[in-house]
Design a protein around this nucleic acid. Structure first.
Lengths: 184, 184
DNA sequence: CAAAATATATACCGCACAGTATAGTCTACT
DNA sequence: AGTAGACTATACTGTGCGGTATATATTTTG
């Protein structure tokens, strides 16, 4: 991947997170990235295409970051450690909300490619949680995964509305109760 | 309140929910409402002022709808019935996500008046849940309220990304476990 | 009836938007 | 040396945006 393309992706990701997607024009993106619109449109066929690549990159990065850490734990412990890493993720000063959650709010039309991609990422995350739950020996892995995803996405939303809300700590406590309840 | 002002508020609320706030122009609003921009700007000093009134109206309506139903129940039962009404609320065909959650995604800057209002509504909702929990005799009412708010807001988000996701059913089950665990 | 408030119609301003056209520059490889 | 590919500079198109100016019509109220 071209250096400039990576730079554009990274700048666009930053601006989308801090100013919103619809509120960020391509002129701003190329100005901050130190390039021109001609170059941007050689790498991306449209702004929508750029948004989709940014969202994919964001989710890929999140999933790689998380699974890399959890893979080092024993399968039975992964569900327990999950919320520690989520807490670490949302506590980063660079955290400005989960990209696919915010994108679905900015593109509410269900037939929009961007909204569809949000749904895809949401399902991928849930499926990953279900794998973790299954590895931990949970019978209703899908059910618990859905409940944990509600807690995590709710906490991410809360932290996006107000930094330092402390929502993750309570989400973790709730998750532990739900996990314990699923085990017996 | 003027009939036309109410009409503008209702039309703007609809369009904001279905197309997004930033993607909805004032020209569209007045065209659908069957009036003109001059009239709109007599009732609202700016688009931002209109957005704020729409958000306030939306939260006011939600809270009135919910508390009206819960007030008819005995205090000790209210927490149990809460998720039944939330389920009814999000299952309405008119449901397109919780307004203050989506607004915070479209206006990510924490110093934006709209983002601040989102935070206010989020706190108001949490405080209301804490009252319900206290009425039900929960010791750590604030803690449980925060956890329940994560489940509810997570489920609303899930239902906004994909209608008919069934997230609320699982949120309800999780809530019952958390409530039971808080009581003992 | 007269005055005052309220709503309309229409045209306009300046700006930002996504996207394109044209022409020129730089670098790298053969 | 020469050519191809990547990048830049700049100007442009057309559309939609938030918001205003002006002037007229309709309704309400004293």
């Amino acid at each position: 991947m071209s250096l400039l393309k990576e730079k554009i992706l990274q700048v666009a990701s930053d601006l989308f997170q801090t100013r919103g997607i619809n509120s960020t024009g391509v002129d701003t993106i190329v100005a901050v990235a130190g390039t021109t619109k001609m170059t941007l449109y050689k790498h991306f066929h449209s702004k929508e295409g750029l948004i989709i690549e940014v969202l994919n990159e964001h989710y890929r990065h999140f999933h790689a970051w998380l699974s890399e850490r959890l893979d080092r734990k024993k399968p039975a412990e992964r569900l327990q450690k999950l919320f520690d890493f989520i807490e670490e993720w949302v506590s980063s000063p660079d955290f400005h909300g989960m990209a696919f959650l915010k994108a679905s709010a900015e593109f509410p039309d269900a037939s929009s490619p961007i909204h569809e991609l949000s749904n895809t990422h949401s399902q991928q995350f849930r499926r990953y949680l279900a794998e973790l739950a299954a590895d931990a020996g949970i019978a209703d892995a899908e059910g618990l995964a859905l409940q944990l995803s509600l807690l995590i996405e709710g906490a991410m939303q809360a932290e996006q509305i107000k930094r330092g809300s402390g929502a993750i700590v309570y989400a973790k406590k709730a998750a532990n109760i739900l996990i314990k309840s699923s085990l017996r």
